[in-house]
């Protein structure tokens, strides 16, 4: 599988990373080289193997339904690049 410039642009757009036209070719070369190297995994026979999601092998603990957090809007908003009152603010979105 080899990435073409359109795919590079699509991935960048999905990842919300601006890519200038002149960067596309370099990215294409780099990503294709990495993906080409990853192709070695196709040699492995994975028939009937259950995928392993993570490093932990146990069932999930559940917490009690108690309010233990929140109630500090000032802390939540303290790092915001833009705010209006107690709201975060972003450029207007048209639905």
């Amino acid at each position: 599988m080899s990435l073409d410039p359109a795919t590079i642009r699509r991935i960048a757009s999905l990842a919300r990373i601006r890519v200038e036209e002149h960067e596309v070719e370099t990215l294409q070369t780099e990503l294709n080289s990495i993906l080409g190297w990853i192709e070695q995994l196709n040699e492995v026979n994975v028939d009937g193997v259950e995928p392993l999601t993570g490093g932990a092998r146990m069932a999930m603990k559940m917490r009690d339904d108690v309010v233990t957090d929140g109630g500090y809007p000032e802390k939540v908003l303290a790092n915001a690049p833009d705010r209006n009152g107690d709201f975060f603010a972003v450029p207007k979105v048209v639905e």
């Binding site: 233990t68 957090d69 929140g70 809007p73 939540v76 908003l77 107690d86």
Partner: peptide
Amino acid sequence: SNAKLFSGSATAFGAEPNSQVSFV
């Protein structure tokens, strides 16, 4: 429920903006 699905913040309707928000 009293608290959110994955955090301990309250779920009540109509609270002041961002007052029922944890860092999670």
